[in-house]
């Protein structure tokens, strides 16, 4: 369904991504793991064009895009078929929880307000926040904000949802409530690409694992295989001593 080939990205002198190839099938839950600074977040941001790649190709629903020369219109079209969840939530500070969800439906996709509202309320219920529709982000906990952000990302029914370290800013208890929601999404068959440090999530929820280091993919494997018997020495070393 989604394929990235030969993705390169530098910031100034430092090369962040050095040739990434990646395939996402429908229904995949892919965990991207690896040490800090390995390029995981940049990879995800390039895939949604928050960063412009220096080189690379993307095949999305059988259409090929040049990731460097892609047009504004194509980017808009790609983004309208994807969802993105940020590490620090990035809820619209001037909008209520419900409006955060409906904004992308009414403004970007021209869905009638009433229909968008119904979808919004259904999404809030889905992430366990029924009754919170009129709360502004500032009066929600981090876990609640992230769940609203997930509701916002899934409301347009995207083909793939990107998660950029969705629980890294949360304490263990709040992490748990966010992971519950993500687990439920995965169980429904949502296609998800998750940059995460939560090894338990990668092991128990993801079906594929991509281990990155130094801007390259060190190992890409089934989650089960990866955790039971990593093929690369570096993967073994990384997993060794991690508590999960």
């Amino acid at each position: 369904m989604l394929e990235v080939r030969g993705l390169f990205k530098s910031f100034g002198q430092s090369e962040i991504l050095r040739g990434i190839d990646l395939t996402v099938e429908k229904g995949d839950v892919i965990a991207i793991i690896g040490p800090s600074g390995s390029g995981k977040t940049t990879l995800l941001r390039c895939m949604n064009y928050l960063e412009r790649a220096d080189a690379g190709q993307m095949v999305f629903d059988d259409v090929t895009y040049d990731m460097k020369l892609v047009t504004k219109k194509e980017i808009l079209d790609i983004r309208r078929r994807t969802g993105f969840v940020f590490q620090n939530y990035n809820l619209f500070a001037n909008k209520t929880a419900l409006k955060n969800i409906t904004e992308g439906l009414t403004t970007a996709r021209k869905i009638p307000a009433e229909e968008a509202r119904e979808t919004g309320l259904r999404m809030l219920e889905k992430v366990g926040l029924a009754g919170y529709e009129d709360y502004y982000p500032a009066s929600l906990s981090g876990g609640q904000q992230q769940r609203v952000a997930i509701a916002r990302a899934i409301a347009p029914d995207p083909e793939v949802i990107y998660f950029d370290e969705p629980t890294s800013a949360l304490d263990p208890e709040l992490t748990k409530e966010v992971l519950e929601v993500m687990r439920a999404l995965a169980a429904e068959g949502s296609t998800m690409v998750v940059v995460t440090h939560e090894m338990a999530f990668a092991k128990n929820v993801a079906n594929k694992v991509i281990f990155m280091e130094g801007g390259r993919i060190v190992e890409a494997a089934d989650a089960e295989t990866f955790f039971a018997a990593p093929a690369q020495d570096r993967s073994r070393e990384f997993l060794h001593g991690l508590d999960y």
Binding site: F86, F92, A108
Partner: peptide, 23 residues
């Protein structure tokens, strides 16, 4: 205004002008 607000608008499928005006 934090840069993340603009990025969140983009990821919600909005254009630059829509995000500027609404967010």
């Amino acid at each position: 205004v934090p840069a993340g607000q603009l990025e969140a608008g983009y990821c919600a499928g909005m254009t630059y002008m829509q995000t500027m005006r609404r967010i």
